[in-house]
Design a protein around this nucleic acid. Sequence first.
DNA 1: CTGAAAGCGCTTACAG
DNA 2: CTGAAAGCGCTTACAG
Lengths: 324, 324
Amino acid sequence: MAVTIKDVAKKAGVNASTVSRVLKDSPEISEKTKVKVRKAMQELGYTRNVAAQILASGKSNTIGVVFPPVEDKSNQPFYMKVLTSINETARKYDVSIAVVTGYKESELKQQVALMYSEKRVDGFIVLYAGQTDSVRDYLLDKKIPFVLLGTPTEKQNEITHVDNDNVLMGHEAARYLIDLGHDEISFVTDTKDGEVFKERYQGYQDEMLKRKRQPKLLVFDEDMSLQTETGLVVMDEVVALKVIARLAEQGLKVPEDVSVITYNNSAFSTIVHPYLTTFDINIVGLGAATVEKFLALTQNERGFHDKTIIPFELILRESTDRKK
Amino acid sequence: MAVTIKDVAKKAGVNASTVSRVLKDSPEISEKTKVKVRKAMQELGYTRNVAAQILASGKSNTIGVVFPPVEDKSNQPFYMKVLTSINETARKYDVSIAVVTGYKESELKQQVALMYSEKRVDGFIVLYAGQTDSVRDYLLDKKIPFVLLGTPTEKQNEITHVDNDNVLMGHEAARYLIDLGHDEISFVTDTKDGEVFKERYQGYQDEMLKRKRQPKLLVFDEDMSLQTETGLVVMDEVVALKVIARLAEQGLKVPEDVSVITYNNSAFSTIVHPYLTTFDINIVGLGAATVEKFLALTQNERGFHDKTIIPFELILRESTDRKK
DNA sequence: CTGAAAGCGCTTACAG
DNA sequence: CTGAAAGCGCTTACAG
């Protein structure tokens, strides 16, 4: 059968409890003993039994990662990337992750409740920040530890969360276009819902006013048409692609006639020319921060919930140019 | 503390072992006792402790799902969708899933080895079928049970796998265009690597010859130009978008001048007009089959490894039309 | 059909 | 700094 702690103990000439302590690198154990025990583990090819650890310690050392209900499939490449980043980071800290997916919010909530009550997870990372969300409400209500990726509309001081500075990204987009010589710049979105939109739009607006330009909001649909704009700040890349196609139908070229700047730096930004000038939101950084904050939350028992801001980066490509 | 099997046993006036048997709905237990025990579980709000079950039974009841190394990010929306489908199906059968991700193949292999030796998983589902893959080789070598999503180039009789019938999808694409009146139809791909390409291309080729048309292969790059083709079968939707953009530069419109049919029905197919006529590969079905085959593999101990073929469906949209 | 008992492989006060 | 012992919450032959 598999090698256990007892086999190692016998081989090293110590008690099983000592092996256990070496396993977690307890400072109580002498270096000498550690070396001896580790050698025995090595020689025997020992690997821990996770289930036994969990049962004995009462800690699962795993985090449940909650994905948005599938209908809400906005920007899918994002999720695969965060998952990878979260998983890598978790492994670094020797914790596991369990995924929670579902087609409806109610399914998610049910799974979250079950997982926690079965002691499979110590808490959750929630990958979306909808206006209202029954999962979040449940976690808050039951005082289950969790970290939110995104910015909640309410209770920001009760929720540990990680996000980019979307207001600043709004500012920066406007500033970049203005600095290229553009004066008439609109903000284009397909939806007015969500904190992300509100923050980016607000930043854009503030910058425009500060620079004495008139802000203007365009809600995209397939009949959208431009007045005199030569610059566009677009909510995300899928919308940007649609906007550019629409402009082409009107005989307007990007970037010759209008410059387009957008957000996320997803796979969509380099499919067809013009490749998109866009803000990279640093998904790897977002994912990593999310697990680090979770660990801090559950281990250090700090009394408050903070917000972590991950820096972004502007990626210059083909969809922006100086005003002609 | 949490409610255990003992509490339930006491309340129901039976032994803990009986409760355990009720938990797995053992046929040995009388209906009457089951009812009594379930009532007690209900009233006490019992939930099982998964770690204890795993430790006592020696079965983890969880499947490791191996994602491709991130560089290989082809068609990312695909992975989020299969994940969801796999997760839903797994839950239905009361098994868990653990994800294995990494930036390099070697990382994946290392994780797979560790997970299995720590008894976290009973085996794996591998979500990609590269020409060579050290993960697959490792699993084969160690005789660890796994199911492959895709078709392996070699050892098809030693690997249980799930896939679409890509040859047939090649046939169907050619047939559909021919039936629309097109005669000069090329197959367009950006890479000649991989089973998927080979099979789709072969099916296309066979159909063309059968119908007395001349098959022709075009490898896409940004200078690609058409001769006299009026129909194109394109490997996937991202390539299709690029092809359509390239055609536009040459003054050719889709579908007026050339019809384009492609594969996968991903999010890319309905971003901009013309929306793409494409084959839906039934990702939900693929994911579900993958876990069902895994369960059959580990539970029934059949002696052989089979291939499961999931049906596809042609989705008619705007990129194809009768020949003018 | 059900019970009593041993055991799965760890952790963790408690003692020394 | 280390050991002996109890315990985590289940499962599963074995017996009847």
